[in-house]
């Protein structure tokens, strides 16, 4: 029992379950799933579908955070990749052609990869602090996206493009499969290879890792590149959902939601140990919370307030000092003392 309680996934999962239970009590329809035309519908299905962009971005963010970094530019990269893809489709004579759509997606993601590589270059090679290095692109990226769309909101009609966010495969939203694919690929790459543990080593102690022969620079660089690519796909999904490239609104605040999802999932912002499963739970928690807030009839603009409350609760729960105080009160655990430095 104690082991379960102290497992890093315990609190994230409890938080998600609590939200689902509360929602179900408030509106029993929450967990009901109906079938229409062989497609599943319901609040939970919506959560699975709507969470896809955040899922992709959060997975990338998790890898970057594990290296002791942070990527503020993901929202801007989403805007750029969406703008690129939609501009290609809008300018093409055959927007419904699958080939056109694939080229558009490919180019959008490649541009995102380049932006990610740029971030990685600043952090890993030039040695700029991650917050600032990615702040540069966060500031400039949306401007670039606006320039690509010529300052307008580009809208398109393209059935294959629309399918990505709005289509269904074997009764489930296609976007959900994109999420699953991203989760599986990230988990395989990080955990089936040694990349995950090497990334953690770099995040925990960069200098020791370098001296142990870990190619820290490459790992950090790769993390930002991966974050860029994932944000690029997220941008495609986002534009596919609204079939428009809105450089200002695309991915707005998503960097913050993603950071929150990662932290909720039990990965410390100080870098090091990370869990893919935790991040997945974190993303679903946030998406469920959003759905709850919407259901409560709170204007979506006020939603940040609730997120703020959640953030504060989460960081307080993670806080050593508070834990120490609680533990002292309960006399269950020894209070933490400063590290023995002799």
């Amino acid at each position: 029992m104690k082991k379960i309680l102290r497992h890093r996934m315990f609190w994230p999962v409890i938080a998600l379950l609590a939200l689902i239970v509360l929602n179900t009590i408030a509106r029993p329809s929450f967990i009901s799933i109906t079938v229409q035309n062989g497609q599943l519908y319901g609040a939970l299905i919506d959560i699975l579908r709507n969470s896809a962009p955040l899922m992709l971005v959060s997975l990338g963010m998790m890898i970057v955070i594990a290296t002791r970094g942070i990527d503020l530019s993901v929202g801007a990269i989403m805007a750029v990749s969406g703008a690129v893809a939609l501009t290609i489709i809008a300018d093409s004579p055959s927007p419904d052609d699958l080939g056109t759509v694939l080229v558009a997606i490919l180019v959008g993601v490649l541009v995102s990869l380049l932006l990610g590589i740029w971030n990685g270059f600043l952090v890993a090679v030039v040695g700029v602090q991650p917050i600032i290095a990615t702040l540069v692109l966060m500031l400039a990226g949306r401007g670039v996206a606006l320039l690509i769309t010529g300052g307008f909101i580009t809208t398109i009609n393209s059935a294959p493009y629309k399918f990505m966010a709005q289509g269904y495969v074997i009764g489930l939203p296609f976007a959900f499969f994109v999420s699953i694919a991203a989760i599986v690929i990230v988990a395989l790459i990080e955990r089936r290879t040694a990349l995950g543990v090497l990334t953690e080593a770099v995040g925990i102690n960069p200098e020791a890792s370098r001296l142990a022969g870990v190619r820290a620079r490459g790992i950090i660089w790769g993390a930002y590149a991966a974050s860029g690519v994932l944000a690029g796909f997220a941008g495609i999904l986002y534009t596919s959902n609204i079939m428009a490239a809105d450089a200002n609104a695309a991915g707005l605040y998503i960097e913050l939601y993603a950071i929150l999802a990662v932290v909720l999932g039990g990965t410390s912002l100080a870098g090091g140990k990370f869990t893919v499963a935790g991040t997945v739970v974190g993303v679903f928690t946030i998406e469920t919370l959003r759905s709850t807030i919407l259901f409560l009839g709170v204007p979506s603009a006020v939603a940040p307030l609730f997120l703020a409350i959640v953030v504060v609760i989460v960081v307080l729960v993670q806080s050593q000092r508070l834990r120490g105080a609680v533990a002292k009160l309960a006399q269950a655990l020894r209070p933490k003392k400063p590290e023995v430095a002799r």
């Binding site: 913050l256 603009a301 307030l305 997120l307 703020a308 953030v311």
Partner: peptide, 13 residues
């Protein structure tokens, strides 16, 4: 970063 982020969310809401 996180503390002020929470404050930002709260104030905006």
């Amino acid at each position: 970063f996180i503390a002020s982020l929470a404050a930002m969310f709260a104030a905006r809401g």
